[in-house]
């Protein structure tokens, strides 16, 4: 049985798709056969971040409607072994996702894959509920600002009440907090919530802190998951998060203000 991971947040634009791409890629790099599913029907983005937009022929909704088989719709990643992408449909809306259809696809994928990473759309409506309903693990992506934190809190309530595990009285979904777009300088100036603040409000274990980084935007535009950029702090932070997701211990990095060196200050770097 595959482990179903949902990357969710409630709020839009916090980095769900970037995180899904990075974590899915990271799991595959560790040798775990992984599939990334884009649940954002109508606002398909994951294919762009993964750089496979030109190879999309069939999509998730086609598979649900039996217009295509899973193997026809799955796109094999060119860079990373053991990584596949199931893109969303751009021409349909979220009502195309039926619980029975989604369950069937997930059951089918469970036979072949170790990890199924579901990239949730923003909001708390049907699309988001479908993405989280079958999850075993939730990665709650949160920016260090109050509205994002509150929306994450809301989504945690939905995970606890409207998921399959909650409805069937199984052990609850494993919840992880992923703080993205973290800027230690702005935290120290009081413009941003600190990791400790976010942890205190949401009261779930911390999976990782991804620093705000130009590399993320660059990677998105190039269609490369940022985790492949081993030079960038964001890529390294995602790699740490993947290790922690797999049960390893990793110290938290990139959460303190970097002291600028003498030359850097001199050169205004």
């Amino acid at each position: 049985m595959a482990k179903i991971i949902v990357v969710t947040s409630g709020k839009g634009g916090v980095g769900k798709t970037t995180s899904s791409a990075a974590i899915g890629t990271g799991l595959a790099m560790k040798g775990h056969k992984t599939v990334l599913i884009d649940f954002d029907v109508g606002l398909r983005n994951l294919d762009l971040i993964m750089g496979c937009e030109r190879r999309v022929v069939y999509d998730f909704v086609n598979v649900i409607n039996k217009e295509a088989t899973l193997s026809q719709a799955l796109i094999k990643d060119k860079r990373t072994k053991d990584l596949y992408i199931l893109p969303a449909s751009q021409t349909r809306d979220k009502d195309a996702l039926t619980p029975e259809g989604v369950e069937e696809v997930l059951n089918e994928l469970s036979k072949d894959f170790e990890y199924i990473v579901c990239d949730s759309p923003a909001g708390i409506e049907r699309g988001a509920q479908m993405a989280l309903y079958f999850a075993d693990v939730a990665i709650v992506t949160t920016n260090p600002e109050v509205s994002s934190v509150r929306d994450s809190d809301r989504i945690l309530g939905i995970l606890q009440s409207k998921s399959r595990r909650a409805e069937q009285g199984l052990s609850p979904i494993e919840e992880h907090l992923l703080v993205t777009r973290y800027n230690p300088e702005r935290v120290s100036e009081g413009e941003m919530l600190s990791v400790a603040d976010v942890e205190e409000i949401l009261a779930i274990p911390l999976l990782g802190v991804i620093p705000e980084s130009e590399a993320v935007l660059k990677a998105s535009n190039q269609g490369t998951p940022v985790i492949l950029d081993t030079q960038a702090v964001a890529g390294q932070a995602y790699a740490d998060a993947v290790e922690r997701l797999l049960g390893e211990q990793r110290p938290l990095r990139f959460t303190d203000v970097q002291k600028k060196g003498f030359f850097k200050r001199l050169l205004g770097g």
């Binding site: 929306d151 809301r154 945690l156 309530g157 939905i158 606890q160 009261a203």
Partner: peptide
């Protein structure tokens, strides 16, 4: 026993 989340 669990946190009462926003919206609950």
């Amino acid at each position: 026993t669990k946190p009462v989340r926003s919206g609950q």
